[in-house]
Amino acid sequence: MHYKQVMLFITGKAVKLATLLIAVSILSFFLISYSPIDPVQLYIGADMTRVSPEQRENIAEYWGLHESKPQQFINWGKAVLHGDFGTSLLYRSPVADVIAERFLASLALMVVAWLLSGVVGFLLGIIAGMRQGTWADHVIKGFCFTLASTPAFWLALLFLMTFSVWLGWFPVGLGTPAGVLAEDVTWVERLRHLVLPALTLSIAGVANVALHTREKLIEVLASEYIRFAKAKGEHGFVLVWRHGLRNISIPAVSLHFASFGELFGGAVLAEQVFSYPGLGQAIVQAGLGGDVPLLLGIVLFSAVFVFVGNVMADLLYQLIDPRMRRSGVQ
């Protein structure tokens, strides 16, 4: 790629991200602001009886709840542009800090799951595609379709029951063991807590990749160039390796990057079941507890996360596929 094209690509994506974030913030801000949930009430919580009406007024005043909705939005937007997402009501610390900390935990989970489901799904897809119509294909297809109908959280519950309760291999719940300070948790301990949620998330992600890879491989195997390659005497594994893999891997990896949204959604559910202290758990708590600043922060963050995945998917085509690489960025 030429320098100019790179710049064009980056600028284009930056503009897209900016408009996207503006739209998402407007939409989510107004949705939340018309919510019947009273943030002051939620903030005060159980202390309700000990807080006088004047104090409530003060809190509302402090948060600027008396100003008009657009004005509130502008205030919030201005703060966000300065990197201030407000203070989480639940965690009593800056939203940005909460997101950063939580995201790191989720990231470990999602990276492991993403890689695992990608590799396993790709392999299953290739086996099914190469053996189309055989029992291996039927088994893999059936497995994937069933998986697609299985709620990730139920899968998580099954794992929890089998591996934690019944076999006792892994801890039940809680990212950090009770009574131990978060800083004192060893790496081994963390890893033990990571295994089951990551496994759940990986298995949940396999179906998509496998089915897509299978479709694509079948399409490629029926192509003219595979016919010609066969006529040239290539067969079996060499044939698939030489002509199949090249042609299916780009769309497969690209699709996998573009599925960051589902990955995030799966993480929300898996984290909930395993009490894993990640971003997914945080958004559930923020939603249930009316922690508006945190909720808005995570909504924006998740949009960026999905966007990054889509850009990676795009970039992959631009960098690897010669048809895109040599004919220039579109």
Binding site: S35, G261, G287, F305
Partner: peptide, 21 residues
Amino acid sequence: DLFLSIPHIVTLILLSVAVGG
């Protein structure tokens, strides 16, 4: 595209909170 840019479950949570659960 806008609706597809946020994870589905996040949109669901957002709407649920907006409507009051």
